[in-house]
Design a binder for these strands. Structure first.
Length: 485
RNA sequence: GGCCCCUUCGUCUAUCGGCUAGGACAUGAGAUUCUCAUUCUCAAAAGAGGGGUUCGAUUCCCCUAGGGGCUACCA
């Protein structure tokens, strides 16, 4: 039997990086096994539904580079793939469970239930479980909308085989008492919808986060009540923040769109995510999408939770950036320069050629695509002011610096016409003549030209900016320092 | 509180009874270098604790501890 898996996000907010990993592992299992990957939208919570979410799901996966074989936008043999369009089905199955005695109507006051929970009361007292029809009719007559609750067994135990965890066993009385299957608004809860849909969509493997382990017993009970065969379960280790808590906002970026906007490459994110809870061997770190699609194996999934390490992601990102060609990097970096207001949209010819020429100089200095703005700002914007502190090298008298700059000024006059090596030799000789270190001659020039003590290679930067403009900046700095003195 | 799951360097992980416990990120030191970065070399860094089982346990079992998750008419 062929493998069918699904990623089933609920459109209640932006796609989470942890959800992206769940989706990735599902996708990889499908690809590595020649199976099918399904996208299903679980929008049964009308209160938390968020308009932008659906589009965010599409945008996220388009950027990430994985696509589904069946889903709301591409269709498929089990359409519709949006749960709100399948409600009649859930109602039908809920009714069926009531008829077969596995479920019953209840007329609880949702508000009262919520309040008692807030008072610290735990569990549900199944007062409607054995109530007579006549008694229930009174509620109906009063117009109280019913919910349908599952009748959890008091005796026995339920167990399932998990591909990661092994055998998981639970006493039935420890499973939440009589959970709601169909809400009073006529929509199903997750438990009903997921079981009905996974069965009808012929899902063979359920890969989801470990937070679902406690409720899997209920799902198994539901499969039994329907007389259906349950899929294989595979609970993925959770993704945590630095402090060991579930990854959340306060740990940093969590929505996929934030990673994208921060300048992460999808292949770096994919590579990093693939290592959270999954491993291949004892040494390999780099996995491209094609590698993962063929190498992924649930056997190598781990049980323990993984802490999300932004620094390692950064390292991956820098590595992948360095592998890009100059043309690719140009296209990748441009949107960030536009966003940061450094170039027009689209850039004019001068800007475009400047940036293209600068790419080789900044490539190995980028950890994030967005770092390009800081690195190229001196080329694309005027420098309004310099800090004297930066212009003056350590252990150097302020009054000496204008002389150094004046000397440097002479040496770069024909920078366009000579090589780096020649320029460097000149500066070495000049530094020696002045009796100072090469760095102390170059640093004021660097700060004058680039506005920063950290920059791309100086001579290259000068040519990119243009000798003329470079000289202007040097002159401005000389004037500034003289005034300061 | 109850239930469930988890436990190897700070972090991600390898090890499926024989280990001088391997790799990567991060960290530290050094080399290269006009700054920054890249690159390279080296270093430090782990089997939660206690019982078993076994010739032999990081690997298997139990207990304790710690961490996490769930405990909704949310998913």
């Amino acid at each position: 039997m062929s493998i069918r898996v699904r990623y089933a996000p609920s459109p209640t907010g932006l796609q989470h990086i942890g959800g992206l990993r769940t989706a990735l592992f599902n996708y990889l299992l499908a690809r590595s096994s020649g199976g099918t990957f399904v996208l299903r939208i679980e929008d049964t919570d009308r209160e938390r539904f968020d308009e932008r979410s659906l589009q965010d799901i599409y945008d996220t996966f388009q950027w990430f580079g994985i696509r589904w074989d069946e889903g709301p936008d591409v269709g498929g043999p089990f359409a519709p793939y949006i749960q709100s369009e399948r409600v009649s089905m859930y109602r039908e199955y809920a009714r069926q469970l009531v008829e077969s005695g596995y479920a019953y109507e209840a007329f609880d006051d949702a508000e009262a239930l919520r309040e008692s929970r807030e008072d610290g009361k735990q569990g549900y007292e199944p007062i409607f479980r054995g109530m007579s029809e006549a008694e229930k009719q009174k509620y109906r007559d009063r117009g109280v909308p019913p919910v349908i609750r599952f009748r959890t067994p008091d005796e026995g135990a339920t167990e399932f085989e998990d591909l990661v965890l092994g055998r998981v066993k639970r006493k039935n009385r420890d499973i939440v008492t009589d959970p709601v299957l169909l809400k009073s608004d006529g929509f199903p809860t997750y438990h009903l919808a997921v079981v009905v849909d996974d069965h009808h969509m012929e899902i063979s493997h359920v890969l989801r986060g470990q937070e679902w382990v406690p409720t899997t017993g209920l799902h198994v009970l539901l499969y039994k009540a329907f007389g259906w065969q349950a899929p294989a379960f595979c609970h993925l280790p959770m993704v945590l923040g630095k402090d060991g808590q579930k990854l959340s906002k306060r740990h940093g970026a969590t929505s996929v769109i934030e990673f994208r906007n921060s300048g992460y490459l999808p292949e770096a994110v994919m590579n990093y995510l693939s290592r959270l809870g999954w491993s291949y061997d004892d040494s390999r770190e780099f996995f491209g999408q094609a590698d993962l699609e063929s190498l992924f194996d649930v056997e190598k999934l781990s049980k323990s939770p993984a802490v999300f390490d932004y620094r390692k992601l950064d390292w991956f990102n820098g590595s992948y950036i360095r592998e890009k060609s100059e043309d690719e990097l140009y296209d990748l970096v441009l949107p960030f320069l536009v966003r940061d207001g450094l170039v027009s949209d689209p850039p004019d010819d001068a800007q475009a050629s400047t940036i293209r020429a600068a790419i080789p100089l900044i490539r190995e200095r980028l950890r994030l695509l967005s770092d390009a703005s800081g690195l190229l700002r001196f080329l694309l914007q005027d420098i309004r002011e310099w800090t004297v502190d930066e212009l003056v090298p350590k252990k150097t008298a302020v009054e000496d610096v204008p002389d150094y700059l004046a000397r440097a000024r002479e040496l770069i006059q024909d920078a366009d016409a000579v090589s780096d090596d020649v320029l460097e030799e000149r500066f070495r000789a000049a530094a020696e003549a002045l009796g100072i270190k090469l760095g102390n001659l170059l640093m004021p020039l660097r700060v004058a030209v680039t506005g920063s003590t950290a920059s791309p290679p100086l001579f290259g930067a000068i040519r990119l900016l243009g000798v003329h403009r470079s000289l202007e900046r040097v002159d401005a700095c000389i004037a500034l320092l003289r005034k300061e003195n």
